[in-house]
């Protein structure tokens, strides 16, 4: 309903404004006749100077050249950048080395797991623990 009333209103408005619009159009027609004559003589002048009005303007040619240069530069940059190479990777599980120390920071034991047998890696070797303790005591006595 609102659109209908809006259309009616526009109809009234343009009916009232139509004489003014007609005068503007007629005046601009006279101006455009002058423009036409100007462009006619300009084309004759351009013909004798070796140009043609049908061809693109110089600024259009410069713009197209500039865009083409930028596109070429972008292509060169893309060609220089190395493309990511997908290599076959092998994952290796690294077992943690467990280092035990006492309150004073003296080394107690070091557990280095072996890669072949996972069962050995899980539990510490007792003999190695004892040896390490004795060594740690000797070091303390020396100090």
């Amino acid at each position: 309903m609102f659109d209908f009333l809006k259309t009616c209103g526009q109809g009234i408005l343009y009916l009232i404004l139509s004489p003014i619009l007609l005068i503007i159009v007629l005046v601009y027609t006279v101006y455009s006749l002058a423009v036409f004559l100007f462009m006619f003589f300009k084309r004759i002048f351009m013909f004798f100077s070796g140009e043609d009005m049908k061809d693109e303007m110089k600024i259009d040619k410069l713009a197209k050249l500039h865009i083409k240069q930028q596109d070429e530069e972008d292509e060169v940059k893309k060609a220089i950048q190395p493309s990511p190479v997908i290599e076959k990777t092998t994952t290796t599980l690294v077992q943690p080395i467990i280092i035990q120390t006492d309150q004073n920071g003296v080394l107690k034991s070091v557990q280095i797991p072996s890669s072949n047998n996972p069962s050995e890696n899980s539990l510490p070797n007792e003999s190695s623990l004892i040896e390490n303790k004795e060594e740690a005591k000797e070091e303390e006595d020396e100090l």
Partner: peptide, 24 residues
Amino acid sequence: DAEVILNKKHFRKVSWEKNRRKFY
């Protein structure tokens, strides 16, 4: 797009010339 238009006055000058040629 090519940034060959310097300012508003230049834009209008070039555009009006194109419009005149199209009209002719």
